[in-house]
Design a protein around this nucleic acid. Structure first.
Lengths: 352, 352
DNA sequence: TGTTAGCACTCTCAACCTCTGACTGCTAAC
DNA sequence: GTTAGCAGTCAGAGGTTGAGAGTGCTAACA
């Protein structure tokens, strides 16, 4: 169904207004915002028609209209199709200057920056993909019978864990195992390694046990069940009126609290560069929306960075911030001029 | 001020009742709980007197009484002085069986167990103390000019971080630095190391830079500003009626969200084995109390494990659970019999 | 002097009403 | 197709009322 240009403009104005005020928008308000001369009665009949099409609802008969999820969807399509505003965020590039750093620190900082810039809660998942290239695997003896496994990848140290090793094997054992393990793993992707696990030859049999353990570790790592999830700015939710509703607040906190589910939810949106999920239809309880961006360091996908907030989210701003962060991560530095273009009005273009 | 035995008994019953129901307790209710024959009028006059002493308040004139923070304090003293119930928690000993494991996993698991057992939100802080003994420091070259520092202590791998190292120093450089660093650091406490940092002799000067960086890292680590804070079971708060009040919920979430402050708060209670902080007088906004227990692995203090919940918290249960966890951590396994003693009644004994 | 029964009093809470203001949908005219 | 005008609807604020809960006080009693 193709919306008329006037309907699109009215719907766009209404969505933006509602995002700003969180109050139902009346025909009179839109008349003021519209610019050209048009009566509120005309707008009312357009609103009635948009309501029939499923883009608007009235909380009650004498109230203004609020957008439905369908309206947000249309609005977001428009935001994504349009040119992104450049919202440059202070402090990101500083700590990203040094390329290889402890990845968790980068992530935590980034999450905080995103949350502060958007005023929403931000979530970052370090995705455990098969495609990360292992640069080196180190075995470090830590205690009798225990060794620390450090896996160094293209994008930093992403995993360290303790495995048990045979005791009383002589002083050279760990060093030898180290070297053999490295031969097998270095410069392969996790995917390669998993496939190669069958082809261990006789000479290596004495390290079989260690191989098995490391491979198990890698598999567990790659399976995605151990996604690391970082949440920052939880309390920012209370700045938004929908979460004064205790039920919404509870659903929101529950979503963040179940980190496994959250990680799963964030990573299961396929190969989309920037995905937006809105409310119940997308599986989000408690009047929530979620915008997630895939991000990479040096070409390899590392995970997802996202923002969780009310359905009535400032998608334009959030998309811009995430887009900027994405660019910085990929090393495409943002231009240095400061003239942030403002969109003229909120007209929603339907996709042809 | 010494409370009469009857006052103590009444106050104890009232506190326990209120912990259970979250409703103001009336004189009639206490009459039922009291056992011996006593009229509600008598109880009323005792209640009036306890109110005058600051142990009780009335939400309004025709309501029952609720305990003040002072009353909780008295109650908690009684709980702490008494014999702890043995609340044995399933699942703790399993993963604690293996002594050296990735410490973060243990902590996360423990936090979850505590939260599930108590039905409150649990927090664990890995405290960065000067007293942990360094067993070994490993330098692992990660990239040109970058090395991973792994510090292995008595209680596991507690810190890993990346430092920059000089480039183009030849293949043996890192290995040599490794050995020199180890000579300096191995088998010392963080405190020792900090004091020794001045005494670097000439022969070691070429590694001066690396020393400095590692020491800086250790200092930063020991300064407590980088306490690692783990929170589990945030959404459990919503099971307790005080957090239907949106203001309380907000204060609670804010407390958990500011991890640095929270870590500071948890570790700044001195050398007390088990500390209880109740409400505003103890610096907790939003009708919160916090019970924290010092815990150690193999004698060395690792950090604090705690529970955060409403002032009206089941202190008895929480203290018991934390006490049990503490014992398991210290390797004193709990006895295997199942007869959990129930306290007879809630009489509060004032300290002599 | 401590304890008790009885009663008047106070206050909350829920139900119910009314009034006002906000917006709408509809209609008739342009 | 657009508009002015108007009747209709509803939420929310404010006020009233009655029931229920629980107290404090008093006077009598052991």
């Amino acid at each position: 169904m193709e919306l008329s240009s006037r309907k699109r403009k009215i719907l766009g104005l209404l969505v933006e207004r509602y995002i700003k005020t969180a109050e139902p928008v009346s025909s009179g308000e839109i008349k003021t915002l519209y610019g050209e001369d048009i009566s509120s009665a005309t707008i009312r009949s357009e609103l009635a028609s948009l309501e029939e099409l499923g883009y608007l609802v009235q909380p009650h008969v004498s109230a203004g209209r609020i957008p439905t999820e369908a309206a947000y969807k249309l609005y977001v399509e428009n935001v994504l199709a349009g040119e992104k505003k450049e919202i440059r965020v202070a402090g990101v590039r500083d700590y990203l200057g040094k390329k290889i750093v402890e990845i968790e620190d980068v992530v935590r900082n980034t999450a905080r920056v995103i949350s502060d810039a958007t005023n929403y809660t931000s979530v970052i998942v370090i995705k455990n993909t098969d495609d990360i290239r292992i640069r080196e695997v180190k075995l470090v003896e830590v205690d009798a019978g225990k060794a620390l496994v450090v896996i160094i990848t293209d994008s930093g140290v992403i995993k360290d864990n303790i495995i048990e090793i045979p005791v009383n094997m002589g002083s050279g054992y760990v060093a030898a195992a180290n070297s053999v393990v490295n031969d097998l793993f270095a410069d392969k992707t996790l995917r390669d390694v998993k496939n190669a696990s069958a082809s261990i030859d006789d000479e290596m049999m004495q390290y079989h046990d260690i191989f098995d353990k490391i491979i198990k570790l890698l598999e567990e790592y790659a399976s995605g069940r151990h996604n690391k999830v970082f949440v920052e700015g939880t309390s920012k939710m209370f700045q938004h009126p929908e979460f004064s509703e205790i039920d919404n607040a509870r659903d929101f906190i529950r979503l963040l609290d179940e980190k496994d589910k959250l990680g799963e939810l964030m990573t299961n949106d396929g190969d989309i560069e920037l995905s937006v999920r809105i409310g119940k239809p997308d599986g989000l309880e408690g009047n929530c929306s979620m915008v997630t961006a895939r991000y990479s360091i040096g070409g390899a996908e590392i995970g997802k960075a996202g923002v969780i907030g009310p359905e009535r989210m400032d998608y334009d701003k959030v998309v811009s911030v995430l887009h900027y962060i994405q660019k910085v991560f990929n090393g495409e530095e943002a231009p240095d001029d400061d003239n942030n273009k403002e969109k003229k009005n909120g007209e929603i273009r339907t996709r042809e």
